[in-house]
């Protein structure tokens, strides 16, 4: 079980999609000090778009213990409409609708519980837009 600060410090990204757009156009959800594309250190803070497309996906059938009760569940790599890349579970969707190129919207969801007395962890999941 992690100290709750480890969880709360990620809230701006996970709840509000606060990210960065570097001068070279590189967009990131996780905080960076420097763009991996050009080395630019100049950026503006933006809210990442919640609309995106699936670049790849899989159905996890053998999860880590924390996610055992969710199994089987889908996970996808998503590129948002402003170009940020992220990994998210796909929820509230049929497995057969999950495809490379499918449109998704990111939504706020419970991710897991940290044991019987631990905090509940929230974050983003993706829903397929048909």
């Amino acid at each position: 079980m992690a100290n709750s600060q480890r969880y709360t410090r990620e809230i701006p990204h996970r709840f509000r999609f606060e990210g960065q757009k570097f001068r070279d156009g590189y967009v990131t959800l996780a905080n960076r000090y420097i763009s991996p594309e050009s080395g630019s250190k100049e950026f503006e803070s933006i809210n990442i778009s919640k609309k995106g497309k699936i670049l790849s996906y899989t159905i996890i059938r053998t999860p880590a213990n924390d996610y055992k009760l969710l199994s089987p569940y889908a996970v996808a790599i998503i590129e948002t409409s402003d170009g940020a890349r992220l990994t998210a579970m796909v929820t509230d969707s049929k497995f057969e609708d999950i495809k490379i190129g499918a449109d998704v919207e990111l939504v706020f969801r419970k991710i897991k519980e940290e044991g019987h007395s631990g905090i509940i962890n929230y974050g983003y999941k993706a829903v397929i837009i048909l």
């Binding site: 996780a30 790849s56 899989t58 996890i60 990994t87 998210a88 579970m89 490379i100 991710i111 999941k125």
Partner: peptide, 20 residues
Amino acid sequence: EYEAYNGVTFPGLYAMMAQV
């Protein structure tokens, strides 16, 4: 924070490479 937190496993990562 950005992969494992969202439930992806190691086989899951390589599975996504395989799909593409």
